[in-house]
C-alpha cells in the first residue's frame, strides 16, 4: 500500500538548511497498524506530512497505491487527501464555527456528496463515536475526548483506506487516550490501515508494528508481539470503577 524508498526532506530556510529526513525506506501493507515513534526533531512529523501529501519530499520515492506521488499534481493531492486518507490531529483541527455534524460533513462536501447523503453518513459516524446527542454542539462546547472523536468521525467520512493520526492522544488524559486507541484498534480490525505518530511508548504499544526514527533516520522497525488491547483495558477500568 505504501512503499517508501530513500525519502529525504530538506528545509531550506535561507541561511541554514535543515535535513529533517535523511533517507527513509520502508513499506506499509494494507491493514497494518503502525506506530511511528521518535523524540521531537526526529522527523516523525515531517514523515507524517509527507505520507499525508501535505508536503512534498526533497528526494526519494513515495508510492501510494501503486502511484508514484511525485508524478501527481496538486489537484490529485487534494483528491487523495479527500478520499484515501483520513487525518486525525493532536489539536483536533475542527473548524470552530461549525457544529460537530458540519465538521464531519466537510470532507464529503469537498467530495461532492449530496447534502442528504452526507448528513445521513455524518450522523451515522457520530453515532458510532457515541456522540449522537452532541452532534449539534460546537467544538468549544465539547470536551477534548469528544472533540477527538468528532475528528475521527470526520476522518472516516469518505471511507478512507488509511488513517493518519499525528499525536492523537497528545492533548488527552490517559482514559480518553485509551478510548481513542480503542477506536483505532476496532477500525484496524475492520481493515483500515492505521498510522499513528506518537512519542508515548504505551500508546505505541497498541500498534502491531513500531517504526522508530532518530535524526531523520529509521533506526528500528519492530513487530509488536503482543499489542495492548485498549478495549480490554477500558472494560477492566470500568469494572474497577464499578467495584468502588
Amino acid at each position: 500500500m505504501i512503499a517508501i524508498n530513500d525519502l529525504q526532506k530538506t528545509y531550506d530556510t535561507g541561511s541554514i538548511t535543515v535535513e529533517a529526513l535523511r533517507g527513509l525506506s520502508f513499506n506499509i501493507n494494507k491493514g497494518e497498524f503502525v506506530a511511528i515513534m521518535g523524540a521531537s526533531g526526529s522527523g516523525k512529523s515531517t514523515l507524517m506530512n509527507l505520507l499525508g501529501l501535505l508536503d512534498v519530499a526533497s528526494a526519494g520515492t513515495y508510492i501510494l497505491n501503486q502511484t508514484e506521488v511525485s508524478a501527481l499534481e496538486e489537484k490529485d493531492f487534494a483528491r487523495i487527501r479527500n478520499k484515501e486518507i483520513g487525518f486525525v490531529f493532536q489539536t483536533f483541527n475542527l473548524l470552530p464555527h461549525l457544529t460537530a455534524l458540519h465538521n464531519v460533513e466537510l470532507p464529503m462536501m469537498y467530495a461532492g456528496v449530496k447534502l442528504a447523503a452526507r448528513r445521513e453518513r455524518a450522523t451515522l459516524l457520530l453515532e458510532r463515536m457515541g456522540l449522537i446527542d452532541r452532534m449539534h454542539h460546537y467544538p468549544n462546547e465539547l470536551s477534548g475526548g469528544q472533540n477527538q472523536r468528532v475528528a475521527i468521525a470526520r476522518s472516516l467520512a469518505n471511507n478512507p483506506a488509511i488513517i493518519l493520526a499525528d499525536e492523537p492522544t497528545g492533548a488527552l488524559d490517559s482514559h480518553t487516550s485509551l478510548e481513542v486507541m480503542d477506536i483505532f484498534q476496532q477500525l484496524n480490525l475492520d481493515g483500515t490501515t492505521i498510522i499513528v505518530v506518537t512519542h508515548e511508548e504505551n500508546i505505541a504499544q497498541h500498534a502491531g508494528r513500531i517504526l522508530r526514527l532518530s535524526d531523520g533516520l529509521l533506526i528500528m522497525d519492530d513487530i509488536v508481539q503482543e499489542p495492548l488491547d485498549a478495549g480490554q483495558a477500558l472494560s477492566s477500568l470500568r469494572k474497577e470503577a464499578g467495584s468502588i
Binding site: A78, R81, N82, P107, N158
Partner: peptide
C-alpha cells in the same frame, strides 16, 4: 490548512 487537509482543492 484544515480545509486543504480534508480535500479542498485550491479552486475550492
Amino acid at each position: 490548512g484544515i480545509r486543504m487537509a480534508l480535500g479542498a482543492r485550491r479552486q475550492d
